[in-house]
Simulated assay, not measured.
Amino acid sequence: MNTYTYFAQAIVNVATRKVEKYELLLRAWSPQTHEWYLPNSFDISVGMQTRMLKEALKDLEVKRVGINLTPEQFASRGVVQRLARFVAQTPELIELTVELTTAPTLTELSAMAPEYHQHGILIALDDVGSDIDDLDLAAQLAPNVDIFKFALQNLREQGHTDDLLGQMRPWAELAAQHDVQFTVEGVETYTDLQLARQAGATRAQGFFFNHPIAPREQKQRAFAQQISNLNDLI
């Protein structure tokens, strides 16, 4: 039986660079190498997800988080109900977002979005501009979506790095038209951050800020930085 946990990666305000939320990313434990790795399958139960969420929240300073759902999970009313109970029973949680790397159909989203939204759960379309690349479909989905996440890392892997700003702008404009928050992920350099800012992104995520790490380790690093800052003042 696999052992899973969540690693956390910061999503920051483009203007202030302050952490606004975290994406929680699934990792599995390898008994052979004694390290956490990115699993091939993300199809774990919602019960396991909420247990890992509870553990992660203990060590995250900012209690706004996003988790990934499979298309089957997103379309399941049982999953919505389980997440809704978790939100209701977890007062320390400020905001929960479910991220979708596969675009739902308009029928699915129209049916399910109100159920998520009535419990204060936000919906993000992840990997827009690459895995989700149909602007016309996205325009139809946008009224029921809260966040677009544009994936620079996918464009790099696909070799589509010409005119990144030009590739981002249509998605940023679509987000603005529908009052959808626009995040650029895969930000690895200061140049990437500048491109995100020029495109109109309000949030950014990527290795330029931090690599995904276990929330407990993140807490320990933050404490060590606080101590270092205090020592600098002495």
Rank of each mutant, 00 (worst) to 15 (best):
V19S: 09
R216D: 12
R216A: 09
A8L: 14
Q218S: 04
I147L: 10
N231Q: 13
G66C: 09
A222R: 14
T183Y: 04
D162P: 10
S30M: 08
D127R: 13
D192W: 01
K219M: 05
S76Y: 09
E115N: 06
R17W: 07
M112N: 07
R17Y: 05
V62G: 03
Q218P: 02
A56S: 15
M1L: 00
G47Q: 14
L193W: 04
L230M: 15
A88M: 14
L25N: 06
A111L: 14
D131E: 11
T5G: 06
R77C: 07
F150R: 07
K54R: 15
V14D: 02
V79D: 11
M112L: 14
F150Y: 14
V46S: 00
W171V: 10
Q194C: 11
S228V: 14
F42N: 09
L152Q: 02
E185D: 09
K58R: 03
E173R: 13
E20Y: 11
T16K: 11
T189K: 04
V87A: 12
R17M: 13
G66V: 05
Q226F: 13
F209D: 10
Q89K: 12
Q198T: 09
I11L: 04
A204F: 07
T90P: 01
R85T: 15
T3C: 03
D163P: 06
L109G: 08
P143Y: 02
V12A: 00
P71M: 13
S41C: 09
P215L: 05
H211K: 06
R82W: 05
T105P: 06
F208W: 06
F42H: 04
R51C: 04
E108K: 13
K18V: 14
R27P: 03
A172R: 09
H34Y: 10
E72C: 00
R82P: 05
G66T: 01
E115A: 08
S76T: 10
A222W: 12
T101G: 04
F208C: 03
V46I: 05
V87F: 14
Q198P: 15
H178S: 13
G159R: 15
S45A: 05
Q73W: 08
D126M: 15
W171G: 05
A10R: 12
M168G: 04
S41D: 14
P212L: 02
E185L: 12
V180E: 02
Y37E: 06
E217I: 13
E72P: 12
Y22V: 06
L193N: 00
A8R: 15
R64S: 06
D146I: 12
P212V: 02
T183C: 12
M1P: 06
E217S: 09
Q194S: 13
R82K: 08
G159A: 13
D136A: 02
Q205R: 02
S41H: 09
L53V: 00
